[in-house]
Amino acid sequence: MMGYAAAEGDLEAGTEQRSRVSVEQKKSSTGWMWKVLGVLALLVLCVAGVRLFVWFWSERPEITRVHSEPPAAPRFTNPEEKTGSHSTLKQILRKAKAAIHLEGTYDEDGEHLELEWSDNVGQAFAQGGLRLDQNQISVPQTGLYFVYGQASFRVSCVDEAGATWRPATLSHRIWRLSDSIGTKVSLMSAVRSACQNVPEVGGKSGQGCYSAIYLGAVFQLNKGDRLWTETNQLSDLETDDGKTFFGAFAL
């Protein structure tokens, strides 16, 4: 039996062929890898471009507007205007189940020398069981209530001769009477000095100082409790709409 011996040329050819196949496989694998990386890079660029486009059209106008508009001039509150607290309270009260908001009046020539409250003038109203009774607020149910009040004053700071400052102390207080306590107690009070740091007025009478005392806090009240106010300097009270008020609402 004759054996077959591979010639030296055949061995070299086989080795070269295998080497060529291996190189081609490596090139093919590397090519696919670069194609995949290229596609991923293209997707990332597309996403980044879309996000940049969206930001440009949605955020940029706001930024431009903020930087292009001049700063707003400072607004000084006019004491004759309604207070911000009054407007905010009115919005809250309209949503409360039980609420009362009273407007104050005072008549120097009237029969009663006290601040009179009304629930049917201006912005005043009563709902949900809270009611005005004998110039006091009557509480219908036990619970948490926000109680508030404001007294506004315009005090003359000179005497009748127009030469001497007339110092005045203003006070405003809210009282509570409860059967569970058995006596009246002061819920809130404040005292303020008027005619402080008032500029010279040249001796002219009638010059005044505007001041307001605001009170407000949350209290646990009982059914049947009664609330009322006590205020001094009644002749100097400002009772225009929204300046002197008293109320409460359930929480």
Rank of each mutant, 00 (worst) to 15 (best):
A124L: 06
A124W: 04
A124I: 11
A124P: 11
A124V: 09
A124D: 05
F125I: 11
F125S: 04
F125C: 03
A126K: 15
A126T: 09
A126P: 13
A126G: 15
Q127T: 14
G128I: 04
G128R: 09
G129M: 13
G129S: 11
L130K: 09
L130Y: 06
L130T: 13
L130Q: 08
R131Y: 05
R131F: 01
L132A: 08
D133H: 01
Q134E: 14
N135L: 01
N135G: 02
Q136C: 08
Q136W: 00
Q136E: 11
Q136D: 00
I137C: 06
I137D: 02
I137Y: 08
S138K: 07
S138N: 08
S138C: 05
V139P: 06
V139L: 10
V139C: 10
P140E: 03
P140G: 00
Q141R: 06
Q141L: 08
Q141Y: 00
Q141V: 08
T142C: 02
G143P: 01
G143E: 01
L144I: 10
F146H: 09
V147S: 03
V147D: 03
V147A: 02
V147T: 02
V147L: 04
Y148E: 05
Y148P: 10
G149V: 03
Q150A: 02
S152A: 12
S152C: 09
S152W: 01
F153R: 07
F153P: 04
R154M: 08
R154N: 14
V155K: 03
V155I: 06
S156N: 12
S156G: 08
S156C: 05
C157F: 03
C157Y: 04
C157N: 09
C157H: 05
V158L: 11
V158Y: 03
D159H: 09
E160R: 08
E160T: 07
E160H: 05
E160Y: 02
E160F: 04
A161P: 00
A161I: 00
G162R: 05
G162F: 02
A163N: 11
T164N: 14
W165E: 13
W165C: 07
R166M: 10
R166V: 10
R166E: 13
R166Q: 11
P167D: 07
P167I: 03
P167F: 06
P167L: 12
A168G: 15
A168D: 11
A168E: 14
A168R: 12
A168S: 15
L170F: 08
S171D: 12
S171L: 13
H172V: 15
W175P: 07
R176H: 12
R176Q: 10
R176L: 15
R176E: 07
L177Q: 15
L177H: 15
S178F: 02
D179N: 11
D179H: 09
D179C: 07
D179V: 12
S180Q: 15
S180P: 14
I181D: 05
I181C: 03
G182Q: 12
G182D: 12
T183I: 13
T183P: 12
T183F: 15
K184C: 13
K184L: 13
K184F: 14
K184Y: 12
K184S: 15
V185S: 14
S186R: 08
S186F: 00
L187S: 00
L187W: 00
L187T: 00
L187A: 00
L187G: 01
M188H: 03
M188W: 01
S189Y: 13
S189T: 12
S189R: 15
A190L: 10
A190R: 10
A190G: 07
A190T: 05
V191D: 14
